[in-house]
Nucleic acid binder design. Sequence first.
DNA 1: ACACATGTTCAGCG
DNA 2: CCGCTGAACATGTG
Length: 262
Amino acid sequence: MPELPDLHVYAKNLNKEVVNKNITALKMYYKDKPSTYFTEYFEKIQNTKITEINREGKELRFLLENGNSFNVHLMLNGRFRIHKTQDEGVISSKIISLDFEGGNTLTISDYQDMAKVALNAPKSPVPDALSEDFTFDYFMMQVNLSKRKNIKGFLIDQHIIRGIGNAYADEILYEAAISPESVTGKIPGEKLRDLYDTIISVLNWAIKEIENAAPDTINKEIRSFLKVHNSGITQTAKGERIFTGTIQKKYTYFTGSQITYK
DNA sequence: ACACATGTTCAGCG
DNA sequence: CCGCTGAACATGTG
């Protein structure tokens, strides 16, 4: 559920809660895996400290004082919680927990069991949408490699750009006035420049909105400020009627003011 | 009570 | 090879 802006805020707030506290115990709750599968995790994550939590695409990377790291991907329904260690029994669908000195525990839970943890994951070569590596030249190179691809499919493809999901793809395309049914290679050059700039501005705008609405959150879904991808409204602030439909297998919100290039 | 919400991987088709 | 489609995962929130 969370996308780049949500995860950005979660990472910032998790830093405030768990950095520089000794990890006294690691607990892993995976089913269908022998306990030896996780021996390495226990060796490398316990009795050290988290020094920094960074967001990379839709994952958070936890850097440890002993030089190791682990990545967390929440997938559709994963959730971070911080609670008293003694309250672990009331949390259901646990994936992994880290107990900290002082009596708090960070738990990642997921009722679908899809959230992923990866020890010492290699850095992805694909640029994050808000990283310096995501340049206009890179963006145009990828456009030229995917000329026949649907533009919404292009934006949410994590092998092209990391971090954009279903909701923000709709917001970006609305703001850039490009229909989600457009074909990437048919969009004119100046609109591609707009689109590139809009990706960055919409994501940064959303981070600010979420920080204002929920300054300390590590798991809330703030979506009510979205201009089109919003089930609570039937028209935009400009009075455009909002249509919905399935595009690229994803439930999509759009308006008639967005131009289709195909 | 019920609509709505999301990401990834893999197999298969044209 | 490229791009699209469906299946599977399963329940919380308002």
